[in-house]
């Protein structure tokens, strides 16, 4: 029983991380139908930025977010102005295709650039609380895992509040529901897209810091993007809270599957679950009808 709870707790931690990884991707996809496969690469770059901030400024990794998030907001802004803005006028399927291709190019460039800047060596940020745990009735809960869960809940909640309670957030939601209608209503649609893209990229900072505390190298970008895509679809497009639930579900199922099929097929079980969900509920768990 203790072992079961212990193993599931690790599932919850990795699930929360999956949710964070997919969050920015989901926001961008929901608002403007861009499939930004470079999101994994941006998270990877965020991890390296955290590493740098910790190394040169001796910040705590979580504190480094006050620098990392604005930096990535600006990066998102630049990427949008330089590359993605011109896709806005395209029809839906063309948008999807072109954003996929451009962001794939960015993925290649980022991974290669990171290899040159930091070498492909494995990296991680070591802290005084790495490996420290809270013992809760025999179940050992690592500080970093708990912090990941809190971070995921707070960030998802904050983004949700922003979208539902602020004027600007409402404008973004209007754009995501109907681009043309929103522009007739006098909403500056291209500005709404710009800001939500920049926020989407800035959100890469949060999983970036968690991954920096675990282990990373330039090539994790591909794995992260794959994971994010799976969670995005599992959650249902445009559902930000669904992202958290989708991530947690995937993480817990993967962890629990150890009892059924052993460690080697862990990831397969998660993916099979994903395909089954799609078969019987094609709009995802929390998504609106496509």
């Amino acid at each position: 029983m203790g072992a079961l709870l212990q193993i599931l707790s690790y599932g919850v931690f990795s699930g929360a991380l999956y949710g964070l990884v997919a969050l920015g991707l989901s926001l961008v996809f929901g608002v403007m139908n861009y499939l930004n496969v470079a999101h994994g690469a941006l998270i990877m770059l965020a991890s390296y930025t955290v590493l740098w901030v910790c190394y040169y400024l001796h910040f705590d990794p979580f504190l480094s977010l006050i620098l990392v998030i604005p930096t990535f907001f600006v990066i998102g802004w630049i990427l949008f102005m330089g590359l993605f803005q011109r896709l806005l006028a395209l029809p839906e399927t063309e948008k999807l295709k072109n954003s996929l291709l451009i962001s794939f190019g960015i993925l290649l460039i980022c991974s290669n650039a990171a290899t040159m800047l930091w070498t492909a060596d494995e990296r991680a940020v070591a802290t005084s609380y790495t490996g420290k745990v809270i013992d809760l009735l025999g179940v050992r809960l690592p500080y970093i895992g708990l912090a990941t869960v809190f971070l995921a809940i707070i960030v998802v909640f904050a983004v949700h509040l922003f979208l539902t309670r602020t004027y600007f957030g409402k404008a973004i939601r209007a754009v995501s529901q109907d681009y043309e209608a929103a522009s007739w209503m006098g909403i500056n649609t291209s500005r709404a897209c710009l800001v939500s893209f920049a926020i989407g990229v800035a959100l890469a900072g949060f999983p970036g810091v968690v991954i920096a505390l675990q282990t990373f190298n330039p090539m994790v970008s591909f794995d992260l993007t794959n994971k994010a895509l799976i969670v995005l679809i599992l959650a249902g497009v445009g559902s930000l809270r669904g992202v958290l639930f989708g991530g947690l579900l995937l993480g817990v199922v993967e962890a629990a599957s150890v009892f059924l099929v052993g460690v080697a097929y862990r990831e397969v079980v998660g993916l099979v679950l994903f395909v089954l969900v799609l078969m019987f509920r094609p709009q995802g768990i929390g998504g609106r009808k496509a």
């Binding site: 072992a3 212990q6 193993i7 690790y10 599932g11 990795s14 794995d223 993967e254 962890a255 150890v258 009892f259 052993g262 460690v263 080697a264 097929y265 862990r266 990831e267």
Partner: peptide, 20 residues
């Protein structure tokens, strides 16, 4: 004596088995 795969990134179950 347990097997794991190249993408495995959670060893909790294996470590608990080793410990017990």
């Amino acid at each position: 004596d347990q097997k794991y795969a190249p993408p495995t990134n959670d060893f909790a179950s294996a470590i608990l088995a080793l410990k017990s």
